[in-house]
Design a protein around this nucleic acid. Sequence first.
DNA 1: CATGAATGAGCCTTCATTCAT
DNA 2: CATGAATGAAGGCTCATTCAT
Lengths: 201, 201, 201, 201
Amino acid sequence: MTEKQLRIVNAAMEVFVEKGYSGSSTSEIAAKAGVAEGTIFRHYKTKKDLLFSIVTPIVAKLVAPFVMKDFYRVLDAPYSTYESFLRAVLRNRIDFIHKHLPALRIFLQEIPFQEELREPFKDMVAANIIPRLRNVAERFQAQGSLRVDFPPESIVRLTMTNILGFLLARYFLLPEYAWDDEAEIERTIDFIIHGLGAPRA
Amino acid sequence: MTEKQLRIVNAAMEVFVEKGYSGSSTSEIAAKAGVAEGTIFRHYKTKKDLLFSIVTPIVAKLVAPFVMKDFYRVLDAPYSTYESFLRAVLRNRIDFIHKHLPALRIFLQEIPFQEELREPFKDMVAANIIPRLRNVAERFQAQGSLRVDFPPESIVRLTMTNILGFLLARYFLLPEYAWDDEAEIERTIDFIIHGLGAPRA
Amino acid sequence: MTEKQLRIVNAAMEVFVEKGYSGSSTSEIAAKAGVAEGTIFRHYKTKKDLLFSIVTPIVAKLVAPFVMKDFYRVLDAPYSTYESFLRAVLRNRIDFIHKHLPALRIFLQEIPFQEELREPFKDMVAANIIPRLRNVAERFQAQGSLRVDFPPESIVRLTMTNILGFLLARYFLLPEYAWDDEAEIERTIDFIIHGLGAPRA
Amino acid sequence: MTEKQLRIVNAAMEVFVEKGYSGSSTSEIAAKAGVAEGTIFRHYKTKKDLLFSIVTPIVAKLVAPFVMKDFYRVLDAPYSTYESFLRAVLRNRIDFIHKHLPALRIFLQEIPFQEELREPFKDMVAANIIPRLRNVAERFQAQGSLRVDFPPESIVRLTMTNILGFLLARYFLLPEYAWDDEAEIERTIDFIIHGLGAPRA
DNA sequence: CATGAATGAGCCTTCATTCAT
DNA sequence: CATGAATGAAGGCTCATTCAT
């Protein structure tokens, strides 16, 4: 990727984040990147190509850990409890967000409007992520460490809600708030474990 | 509100939901509403006025129950437990969503791009909703029914995360899924109570 | 057709004649018509629509006399000789050219580049005009007034060549030349008759 | 002329024929020629230079036989009749077309739009070709083998019309048609001779 | 009050041309 | 000599908005 291309992508990310894809103009992007407008179109055939060049890699990486062949192994040795599983996933996704905040934001903002983005993503989540998390939930239920009066679907939903809820609040809704990250992560995990854990005998 | 105005607003909602505010054209709205382009501008000075006429009332109603002068009273007599409080809030918000789904969707989609929408809303939440919920949390903590090893802020955050998380999943992300509403509501509440409740003596 | 539309069409004809369709810009047409550029697109969805709105009616009128149901009748009573037939056709086409010179010029100039124009026109000529002229030729051959050592196709080709050749030279190639129209028309007809007529017994 | 230059010219001819000069883009020509865009401009300063490099030589060759110093001689010894003169010209021009069909097509298509092409060509025809043909006509009129009731200008016009008319139909309008070239050439000549020849005593 | 023709700024994109490599 | 990235003007077209009817 040439230096000029990098400037274009960075400028595009800035503008897309602020005004959304539809609200952004290629002329503004070009100006902010310090290149001629024509230069954008030498590298990206259309404005939409530019958007997708930013957002498609994100989708891939977003789901990457969940579609790994050895997803189970994550849990095997070191993470033998649901708690350690949660902690691993949460920290992994935090790292990911740190690296890709602006692109993620664009992804979130555009997913309602870009069918080419939404449908494959939905399919991917339905086909890969949900079933794998379900398996994990069932496994810990069988093992007696997660409550069995909830169906595994609800376990998965509530777990995801709280992980995503934390990430969203922390990085997108209130990034400026004085978060005590360590404490809040532990509280989130503690909360999930208390809410979903099997009752002590 | 005249019949023509109603047709305009409904058409606008359809188009805004699908393409977003920036991606929609007043000509498409006019066509879908079956009125002349000029007619839109007779009722709404600008396209943005039209958006706000849809979205501002939503904001008001969205926060309404939390800014009521007698918000405390909600809890007094009938809702003497955190559980009944949760149940009341959740059901109330479900009713609300049922009535205003499209406008809410537009609100959610546009909030990243419309500063005039985002900032007042944020302020309102920060100034009114959060403190009131905080008070409720502290009250139940003092009363011994919510765990005290979490700061009230975390209680509020986790509670909101799970209420909003349920509503989002139920009505926006997976509206087609075969939800067992009653059961899932109860599970959500049960989960929160287990996760946040004070340990039994 | 509104007055503004008329101004647009006239301006378009001027510009198309001079620079060809591809070489013309809608902004120049708008300027010459004294309207805003957007106005063009209110009346014609695309630049090509504008071209076709000028050129398609011409095609229809161009072939009109040959596809008339009573084409034969033209010859019956008054035109009982090939000579009077030629004279009728030639004068009729001259009138036509006088009325539609610029549009015709655009038609001629664009036909090599516009497949949507060329193919239907070719088909029309092949399916309607040629066969009818062929019939006429055969009829006068049978009647003994046209030479029979030429196949009717050649009769038709040579006749058309000379009619079109005169019209092209007169109105498109050398319109400024000091033509003696009456004399040249008669010479053209005389020439054709001498060239194609059956040898006097 | 380098091999690359040849590829450029050939590609340009293909594209110009199909889309016309204005409708063609240097990038398409470069792609079709398999060279970089810049390479075109190394050999031809502008796109118009490229057009003229194709079309100007054609003009020269087009008029060449008529401007030869010994044009008269063509007629002297072997072609002592108007008929043999016609035959010589026609066959000579057919050879020429066979060699230069695409370039000729471009010439014909562009002449309405390129003043730099049209005006010199017109002047050349007016100054050289017409007068020489006129001389030929007058000569055969004087010699008693062409009719004298037509002014020589009409003789010239009708002769050119039929020669060009044949060539146009044969090579440009209906190249696919199953022509019997020999027969049609002879018919064309025969027709001209019959139409223009002096009446037998 | 409703209409829809008219506007012209602005949009995305293409283009011929230049120039450093 | 060839390349192809870069340019910025210009292209066709859309848009929100205005206003005479």
